Amino acid sequence: MPSRPSRRELIAGAAALTATTPALLHAATPAAAPSLKGRTILITGTSSGFGRVGALYYAGLGAKVIATMRGLPRPEADTLAAEAAKEKLDLHIVEIDVTSDVSVAAGTAKALEIAGGRIDTLINNAGIGITGPVEVQDMEATKLIFDTNVLGIQRMQLALLPQMRAAKSGQIFNISSQLGRVIVPGGGHYSATKFAVEAMSEQLAYELVPHGIEVTVIQPGGYPTKVWVNRNAYTGALKQRSDAAVLEAYAPFTKGMGTEDGSGRSADPLDVPRAIAEVMAMPAGKRPLRRAVHPGNKPQEAINRVSAEVQLAWLGGSALGPLIKAVHD
């Protein structure tokens, strides 16, 4: 078992994250891509970012991919379909709004029909960000981000777990963030939602051991995706309806609300699908609970190690020990 990092090491890791320059953030040459032939993957939030590049990447590796997004018809769906058709990929686009029980039920039913009744891999990628201090986050913003980032994942899990349990196999990937383990002031409730994703995913991983289903939490760092555009729209609207006195009280954190552009980030968004495909290709029972993804510093890794040590020390010798050890050993 690895040694527990000191408090000094944890702080140093977090400090190094902010000190890393863009020039150091270019990914290393990726390993040979695995074959995903025979897999059926459903991924949410494929209109842009990790979801879009991932859908094409997995299909390019031989998987049947059901790429979902909300608000169909939309141009992003048309261009994704055209690109898939050009490459003769087995990719199907289905409408799912993860904030809607009705949409999730209808979309997953259609996806299962396309897949012949069996989806072996679920990638919960859909998510949003809304920045600003906690006091500035009104209930409209709070409900929206939790409904998307946390309840959206739960809706998808509830929809697809029954057929995975029936098959006694399956994989779930939940996209978290570095900010699911570390916190940046002014980040709104993004960390709060991602901390919730981390906890829910880990609990689920333990509970699914007897069913042969594995859960991996993906923890990306900052990447230059369209998330910045979408986040600015939500954050800008929040700022517009916020009380001026409250905004002024937190001036260092509210000044730039709705204007962040992700500049200085040059890492390749394809890092995330590559990491997911690599985990998919690992032997059953050997896949990690968590995978940090970024060519720069990963301050969450120290916390991941400590968390695993604590879980093993606390519950490893109890009646729950076999579940805990199956996930962490």
Rank of each mutant, 00 (worst) to 15 (best):
Q137T: 05
V217W: 03
A28T: 11
K239F: 08
N297T: 13
D97W: 09
L158P: 02
P30I: 07
L247M: 13
E202W: 02
V217E: 06
A55N: 04
E95T: 04
L112T: 01
M257W: 13
F173Y: 11
A85H: 05
A141N: 04
A281K: 03
I114D: 00
S176Q: 09
P5T: 06
T254R: 14
V327L: 06
R74Q: 11
R155V: 00
T21G: 14
A244Q: 15
V150T: 10
R265E: 13
A237E: 15
S242H: 13
P210D: 11
A111K: 00
A244T: 10
G222D: 15
M282S: 00
G258L: 12
A237H: 13
Q178T: 11
G170M: 00
F195Y: 15
T29C: 11
Q178A: 12
Y223M: 02
Q157L: 13
N149S: 05
S47P: 06
N232H: 08
L323V: 01
R274V: 07
I43L: 04
E76Y: 03
Y57V: 00
Q137M: 15
T148G: 02
S6A: 13
A267R: 09
G256N: 15
G170W: 00
G170K: 00
Y206L: 06
V306P: 11
I276F: 01
A141C: 05
A14K: 10
A166V: 03
G51L: 04
I303G: 08
E278A: 12
N232A: 07
A159V: 02
E198I: 01
M156H: 09
V229L: 13
A199W: 10
L91H: 00
